[in-house]
Structures are given as C-alpha cells and as structure tokens.
Simulated assay, not measured.
Amino acid sequence: MPRTDIQNLALREQRREEILQAALKVFARRGMVATKISDIAKEANLSHGLVYHYFQSKEEIFTLLVQRAADSSVQIIEQAYLQAGTPFEKITWMTEQILHSLAEGQQILLFLIMIQASTSDAVPEEVKQLFTSKEFKSPVHCLIPLIMEGQQHHDIISENPLQLAVSYYAFIQGFAINKLQWAQCPLPEAASIMKIFK
C-alpha cells in the first residue's frame, strides 16, 4: 500500500531531523572546515546521495543548526519573561532551565555550534549574514531588557546591562564547553551564577 502525502511529508521531516542531529554531533567533534557530507552521512547511517537529496551542502546544514541554536537560546529568554516574579527571579528560572539542559546533555552541542559560528573565520557566508541581519535576535541583546527591568526594581546591580549579559553568557558557554570535554563536570547551582547580578 503506497504512502500518503502526509506520511511522505512526515518521513521527509524525520529524515531531515536525523541528518541534522547527526551533523550536530559531527560538527561539534570536527568543526565546520574538517566536516564532509560523507562524515554526516556515516553518522546518520544514510547514503552520501541521500543526504544530498535533503540538503544542498554542509554549509546549508551548518547554517540551519546555527539558526536552531540561536532560536533555542532566545526561546528560553521569551519563556523567562512569562514567568511570575521579579526580573531577577525570572533570570534565575531561566538559568535553572539552561543548567538542567546542560546536565542532560541536550543543549551542549547547540552551544558549541554557536561558539564555532561566532569565532571561526571559516563559517559560511549565510551564517555571517544571519548574525548581521536586522531580523537576527541575539540572546545577549534579548536578555538586556530583563536586566534593565531588574535594575529599575533594584534587584540587579546598576552596571552596564550589555556587559552583564555578556558575562552571563560567558559563564554558560564555559560550562557547556567543560561539560562537553568532561562529562562528569559538576555544574553549579543557578544561585552561584546569579551572583554576577547582585
């Protein structure tokens, strides 16, 4: 019995997701430059040609993963805004969620992709354009209004909000890298990270 259009679409989306997940692991291990489509295909247990059926190039895959990583970081901030409590309590909630995802291993590779994308000269032109486009939402810049609101409530120190946001994400990215290199790396409590805002 032939598959329906809905089943075909579902299978296509499943295949694309399998390739993206495999690519995420390979890019994290090998970096953008050293990764080949054949490496991604091998990781996904798919043929080289089948990967090309779903994606035009490794650059396209990398760009999609960078967009996913950025969206994921912004979504957690948007969820934090919706939480009850003061701005400080909202950022604390967000920090707990991020640390939990790092402990579970879900977000570590996405953090690593973002670090590669923002520090390597070899990233695709599409990624550079993504970072400089007006539509791009940087997690650092999305956090600033919440920090400023906290400063107005006097529960966050009156220092440069951009510097505070940068410092916050430097901590998070550092823990992500440590956790990737050392799986048993103990992560701090959210309260320890939140001290930078006091």
Rank of each mutant, 00 (worst) to 15 (best):
N160C: 06
K137M: 13
L109M: 12
A176W: 12
F111I: 00
R30K: 04
F197H: 11
S57V: 14
M194S: 03
A80E: 12
V127E: 04
A84D: 14
L9F: 09
G150N: 13
E96R: 02
R12H: 07
Q152S: 01
K137E: 15
K36A: 13
I37N: 01
E126T: 10
L99Y: 07
H153P: 00
E135S: 08
A41H: 05
L143P: 03
R29Q: 14
D71E: 14
D71M: 02
L82W: 12
V33P: 00
E78V: 04
E59Q: 03
T63K: 10
H48Q: 08
Y54T: 02
L64M: 08
D71S: 05
Q106D: 14
W182Y: 09
V127N: 02
M148I: 09
A170R: 13
N178I: 03
S101I: 09
I91F: 05
I37A: 03
L20G: 04
R68H: 06
S192P: 03
E78Q: 11
H141M: 07
C185Q: 05
Q107R: 04
E17Q: 01
I144D: 12
Q163F: 06
D71L: 00
F136Y: 11
Q184S: 12
V166I: 15
P188E: 02
Q151G: 06
G105D: 14
K134I: 09
I172Y: 11
I156K: 09
A84Q: 15
H141Q: 11
L130I: 07
F131A: 03
L164C: 11
M32G: 08
F62K: 09
S138P: 06
Q129L: 07
A170Y: 08
E78P: 00
H53S: 08
